[in-house]
Design a protein around this nucleic acid. Sequence first.
DNA 1: TTGACAGCAGAACGCCCGTTCTTTAGGATG
DNA 2: CATCCTAAAGAACGGGCGTTCTGCTGTCAA
Lengths: 198, 198
Amino acid sequence: MTDSDPSARDAEYLAKLQDYYASWKSIPSYASLCDVFGIASKSWVKAILDRLVKAGFIERTPDGMMIPTRDFFARPLAESSVQAGMPVAVNETQGDYFVIDEMLIDKPSTTTLIPVKGDSMIDAGIHEGDVAVVEKRNVANIGDIVVAIVDNEFTLKTLDKERGQYILRPANQAYPVIRPQGSLEIFGVLVGLIRKYK
Amino acid sequence: MTDSDPSARDAEYLAKLQDYYASWKSIPSYASLCDVFGIASKSWVKAILDRLVKAGFIERTPDGMMIPTRDFFARPLAESSVQAGMPVAVNETQGDYFVIDEMLIDKPSTTTLIPVKGDSMIDAGIHEGDVAVVEKRNVANIGDIVVAIVDNEFTLKTLDKERGQYILRPANQAYPVIRPQGSLEIFGVLVGLIRKYK
DNA sequence: TTGACAGCAGAACGCCCGTTCTTTAGGATG
DNA sequence: CATCCTAAAGAACGGGCGTTCTGCTGTCAA
């Protein structure tokens, strides 16, 4: 069973699919792909797509829909010039939005952005003006950086435990450790950080 | 014709759709959306989607497939003025919404993402593993943090001038100032920073 | 109390979609 | 000249998909 070795022209078809996807951000139906590929039969489109799936450029969701993989976005980029000082920069990909979002945000519905005020976490590399990406939930692990509500104010600190009691530890010696009396109200957990220069 | 005012629960449905999309990067069939939304009838799913289309969160390709728009990826930015106890104000509509990519990237075609190695800029709050958002260009101002090419390697340093000569200043006393002989090759300028926790 | 409407359930339908099978044309190969 | 193999075309089909319509239930205002 020779099955399917990657056809020579699959690269060409892949290129057309990438162009289409760049425009519409979806993989169309087989019928539409006939137009995209310049082919008249759906069966051959299926054969091509099956090979692209096997080659790892596309995958299927549980619903059978086809979505691109990371390899789908990979650019050819001249490898020989790597030594010449040119970038190995990983992410030369897709010049559109939702790249960084995808990276930082797992659960969009519970994620919110909160600007950082003050320098109490500066030793953790979190500066005033940075934007904290916070996943809203009220449970966290020791060592997580959390957004807690203390005295009716947001505060960003590292969650720790001291003699069975939760405490909030700043990352700046100029600030005191916060030892809340009673229960500690956690608003969310820091999952990412964004900084804009200039 | 009552048409459709945005239903109160549409925000909730949108949130579920966003979460699904974050996982699968596609909008599933109406039947699957019944499960996602926790709804039993496809007709109601269609009604919801129609409203989301009209509200500008999703749109349709020529093939009738549904794809997210820019607004679909917008995240709420909490106002710093949330002293009033519960900052649930974030949840309700009228806050500011931001798309992270648009926030950080002005010129997509010349912007690239480069992972940070080493701790030579740690005093500037730039840690190993952070991702630098770099705008590719070969001119920069004094004080800018630049990606320069030194000895065929990328290096991230602050651009400075010393006796009429450009130098690269690290933000870590353990590292030396770089004084390039001859011209200085600048790859790009740091315009943003991304960090992912956990 | 009575509608009027929003919020959904459920059935019914026609068409398109993905799949499979069969057939064809045109190189290679020998 | 016979034979493969690749690269398609094309027909045929069953089911799922989106669409439409009709019906049900709770709520709230008049």
